[in-house]
Simulated scan of single mutants.
Amino acid sequence: MPCTYTSLTPLKSGVKYWILIISILLFFSCRENNGSDSSTDDTPSEEITSISFTAIGDVPYNNEQRDGLIDIISRHNAIDPSEFVIHVGDIKPGAAECDETVYQDVSGILRTFEAPTFIVLGDNEYNDCSNPQQGLEYWNKYFLHFNENWTFEPTVIYQPERTENFSWTQKNVLFIGVNLVGSQVHDSLEWHNRLVQNGQWVKKLLEEQVDNVEAMVVFGHANIVEAGPDKFKPFTDLFRSAAQSFGKPILMVQGDGHFWIKNKPWPEQNITRLQIDGRDTAVKITVDTSLEYPFSFDRHFLDPSSQNKNHPQ
């Protein structure tokens, strides 16, 4: 409501005095209110366009790496650098027996992360087992929908055909996790069907979210580029086709190889493939959709001498 002031001319002097005082108070009150409203309306809201997460994988393979993983989690909890953590598979060495106590032990260790933690299947705890079905049952018991052990604000959805595959959107980024393991092909029909279902899941989500997100990150375990690319073709063809149609930046994060690779292995130049170091190491990945190339990587953020410093690569 606009401020109005009463004329003092026809009033007696005593009344005029008090009305004058009230008018002055009203005047300054109106100026203060109008200034406050103007400041609120004119101040632009700062939109946060980046999200950081931590990737680990291929760990633990022995007692030393088990201790290293516990140390990583302790340091990670102390500085809280990420919105979430992703383990890209292999919680044990492939040659070791697929003993239920190992799944239970690693599950308990990973639950000590304060940040919500996701995990995808690796071949060592599933496909390399002497009884793959038994290994899968152990994994489902201790790791299926592992993220539900934490409160996580975005809504996570699961693929109806493969409930181990998950997805959500956050900060204009589409995140997808798929059951993409390497090593032996025990059943060619099962292998083909699983890869097709993975590819169809990625394709479907990209088509649904193309107007809502500015980037995508996919998590899977296997090295599908150097480690026998032909056997991954049912997935790779669908993935690359969907990426080409999407046209926006895509990051594919994998484990499996135990050494760092960051490249663009396919003609679709919007896809960056990252193979993490694995073992008892971690990398912080930041996605900033305000940048032309939105992905940056910090492999030293948990180094004792480097905490509270930025070391993007």
Rank of each mutant, 00 (worst) to 15 (best):
V156M: 07
A115H: 02
Y138H: 15
P116L: 01
N147D: 15
G122P: 11
D105L: 06
E125M: 12
K141A: 13
N149C: 03
E100V: 14
D128F: 02
Y103F: 15
V106C: 04
G122W: 01
N140A: 15
N131Y: 08
W150C: 00
A115C: 01
N124Q: 13
F118K: 04
G122V: 03
Y142S: 01
I119Y: 11
Y142N: 06
A115V: 00
E125S: 12
P132G: 00
F146P: 08
D123I: 05
F113D: 01
K141L: 07
Y138Q: 09
P154N: 13
E97K: 07
L121D: 10
W150Q: 03
E137P: 11
C98D: 08
V120H: 04
F143T: 06
W139I: 01
D105V: 14
T151K: 08
N127M: 08
V106S: 06
S130V: 09
F146S: 04
P154I: 05
N131H: 11
T101H: 10
D99P: 11
V156I: 14
T151M: 07
T155H: 09
H145L: 04
I157W: 02
W150E: 03
C129E: 02
T155A: 11
G135F: 04
A96E: 09
Y103D: 10
F118S: 14
W139M: 05
E97H: 10
N140R: 15
Q134N: 13
N124R: 11
G135K: 03
Y126R: 14
E100N: 12
A96P: 05
D99G: 08
P116K: 02
D128E: 15
F143A: 05
N147I: 08
E125K: 10
E100Y: 09
W139K: 07
F143P: 09
S107E: 08
V102H: 08
E97P: 11
I109G: 06
N124D: 14
V120E: 03
A96M: 06
C98Y: 09
F146W: 02
N124Y: 10
I119F: 08
L136H: 06
T117C: 11
A96Y: 09
C129M: 01
Q159K: 10
E137C: 03
D123R: 07
L136S: 15
Y142F: 15
E114S: 11
E148I: 02
V120Y: 04
L110V: 06
G135E: 03
D105T: 15
S107L: 05
A96W: 08
Y138T: 12
V106W: 00
Y142V: 01
E100W: 09
I119M: 11
W139L: 12
N127D: 14
Q104T: 13
Y138A: 12
T112Q: 09
L136A: 12
N131V: 06
S107C: 08
C129N: 03
Q134V: 07
